[in-house]
């Protein structure tokens, strides 16, 4: 059965008569399992346009459902529910409710770009996954994923200073996502490193954590970037019919 019809055979959509005779023939149980009649009235006709208005989603209309994206997908190989082709199909038809069933896994795209490599229509499915994950968050269907939080922390450092410092990034990310920094595997790595590393390098890394590495004369660039980010954020919210809220500045 094609992926598009998979929802039809979900348990709740099947009708099974335990006792049924048709024209004198007993068709009880499995012989009497039917797909329930379904009438879809709740199309969200704006859905495809909204995804296309977000960065990465621009080319979703090109898709002709060949399935190359899902076939090549890294995440699909470890979780069959992760199905870019299906989500593109749902978005283009405006089947929002069906899309929302998978809202908590769409952000898990690892951006390996195998789909983009395989796609014969230049849909850039990787971009569509990012746009869809953003859409879910902007619309309030999901809370910011840990990936979004990481992107914010990382980009915030770049916007403010021009460079990132990995130690600080890790600490801030772990704090914001409520994870302990002292993960057993991380502790083991750091112990090993400290045992082997020359003191000079450790001091250097320690200093980098204290004195944030930065690009010189970054001020005007920082301001230009912040202004741009605020503009884009407002543009995206308008495209989705959402109220425009002031955005926090970086730096």
């Amino acid at each position: 059965m094609p992926i598009h019809e998979k929802s039809l055979i979900r348990k709740e959509n099947l009708i099974r008569n335990e006792k049924l005779a048709l024209e004198g023939v007993d068709v009880s149980g499995d012989w009497s399992t039917f797909i329930g009649t379904r009438v879809i009235t709740d199309y969200n006709e704006a859905l495809e346009g909204e995804i296309a208005a977000l960065p990465g989603g621009e080319h979703i209309h090109r898709c002709w459902q060949c399935g190359s994206c899902t076939n090549s997908c890294t995440v699909n190989a470890i979780n069959p529910e992760f199905n870019p082709r299906y989500w593109i199909y749902l978005i283009r038809l405006g089947l929002e409710e069906e899309l929302l069933r998978d809202k908590d896994i769409i952000w898990q795209c690892v951006s390996c770009n195998k789909c983009t490599y395989a796609c014969p229509r230049d849909v850039v499915p990787e971009g569509v996954m990012k746009a869809t994950a953003h859409w879910l968050e902007l619309k309030g269907h999901t809370r910011p994923s840990s990936s979004t939080i990481f992107d914010e922390e990382f980009s915030g450092q770049v916007f403010a200073k021009g460079k990132i410092e990995e130690g600080r990034l890790m600490r801030k990310f772990f704090a914001r996502t409520g994870q302990k920094l002292a993960q057993p595997w991380l502790v083991a790595i750091i112990r090993g490193l400290v045992a082997r590393m020359p003191a000079g390098l450790l001091t250097r890394l320690g200093l980098a954590a204290l004195i944030h590495p930065r690009t010189r004369d970054w001020g005007r660039t920082r301001d230009a970037i912040n202004e741009y980010v605020i503009d884009q954020h407002a543009r995206q919210r308008r495209a989705l019919g959402l109220a425009v809220t002031p955005t926090e500045r970086h730096g």
Binding site: P55, G56, S111, G127, K130, S147, T148, F150, D151, E152, F154, S155, Q157, V158, G162, K163, I164, T215, W218, T221, Y228, V229, Q232
Partner: peptide, 13 residues
């Protein structure tokens, strides 16, 4: 400056 890595692209390509 930083190239933006994957993270800045996710914010804005």
């Amino acid at each position: 400056n930083c190239c933006g890595a994957m993270e800045v692209k996710n914010v804005d390509p």
